[in-house]
């Protein structure tokens, strides 16, 4: 079975929310589930091979960050219980437990959110936000942002090269580097302001009033499932809080 974008979003949001309420053991299990979903499920299939690689790199980073958090909190937070000595360092059980809690929460939360985005192009996400009622103007800004995100690195590279060719220093002391940064930023911002004026006019000349119809029609079944998942998790969370 393959979930639609809305139910996929609901599932990821639920997992991210659960991270704040579950004990670390459960969070860790769910974190592993996220990894399995990313690798094996059709629903969360990454949009591209680089996206998949980036996700795996991020997981490795998350795990090392998690271990670091356990280590630091184990060292720094003293509790009532006696410390255990490992490799000559004193680790406190309360600190370790706190570190594990925070680390597993962060790991589940981050991986669940990224699980959605690694398998959903931003344009489809923009469609989804539109279905959920976000104003059309905001959707069009998201789409324009993705457009600029595609264009900016090349523009920055171009300015960077021309500044380098003119001898602008990219090494040297802080002030020199800030100056160099300014010499890259200045043409970038100026050209973008000019372009904003022209693009704003061009959009108006094409009758654009801020409305962006979604690129595909809304899948009613997918939305029913999404609302079901979201309302179930909401009820479960309320119950957990009340308990």
């Amino acid at each position: 079975m393959r979930f639609g974008t809305a139910s996929k979003f609901a599932l990821s949001a639920t997992l991210a929310l659960l991270a704040f309420f579950l004990p670390w053991q459960a969070s860790l299990v769910l974190f592993l589930c996220v990894v399995i979903l990313e690798i094996f499920s059709d629903t969360y299939k990454p949009i591209s091979a680089p996206a998949h690689k980036a996700f795996l790199r991020f997981l490795a980073y998350l795990v090392s960050l998690g271990l670091f958090m356990v280590f630091i909190n184990g060292l720094l937070i003293e509790g009532d219980d006696d410390a255990c000595i490992i490799l000559g360092l004193s680790f406190y059980p309360d600190g370790l437990a706190f570190g594990l809690n925070v680390a597993c929460r962060l790991m589940l939360l981050s991986s669940a959110i990224l699980l959605f985005f690694v398998s959903t192009p931003i344009k489809i996400f923009a469609d989804l936000l539109g279905y959920f009622g976000l104003p059309q103007k905001i959707i069009s800004i998201i789409l324009l942002t993705t457009f600029y995100l595609e264009q900016l690195p090349a523009r920055i590279r171009q300015i960077f090269w021309s500044q380098e060719a003119r001898g602008a220093p990219i090494k040297g002391n802080f002030i020199l580097r800030i100056r160099s940064f300014f010499s890259i930023l200045s043409p970038l911002v100026l050209s973008s302001l000019v372009e904003s004026v022209n693009r704003g006019m061009a959009l108006e000349l094409r009758g654009f009033r801020g409305q962006v119809p979604p690129s595909r029609p809304r899948d009613v079944r997918d939305f029913r499932l999404a609302y079901l998942i979201l309302s179930t998790s909401f009820v479960l969370l309320l119950w957990q809080v009340w308990k």
């Binding site: 069009s140 600029y148 022209n198 061009a202 000349l205 094409r206 009758g207 654009f208 409305q211």
Partner: peptide
């Protein structure tokens, strides 16, 4: 009206030539 630089007339909101033309009709 088509402005001097044709690339500025492209909305940046659509991914294909077909959808870019459709954008005018949607508006």
């Amino acid at each position: 009206l088509c402005l001097q630089e044709p690339q500025i007339m492209i909305s940046g909101l659509r991914d294909t030539v077909y959808d870019e033309i459709k954008f005018s009709l949607e508006n």
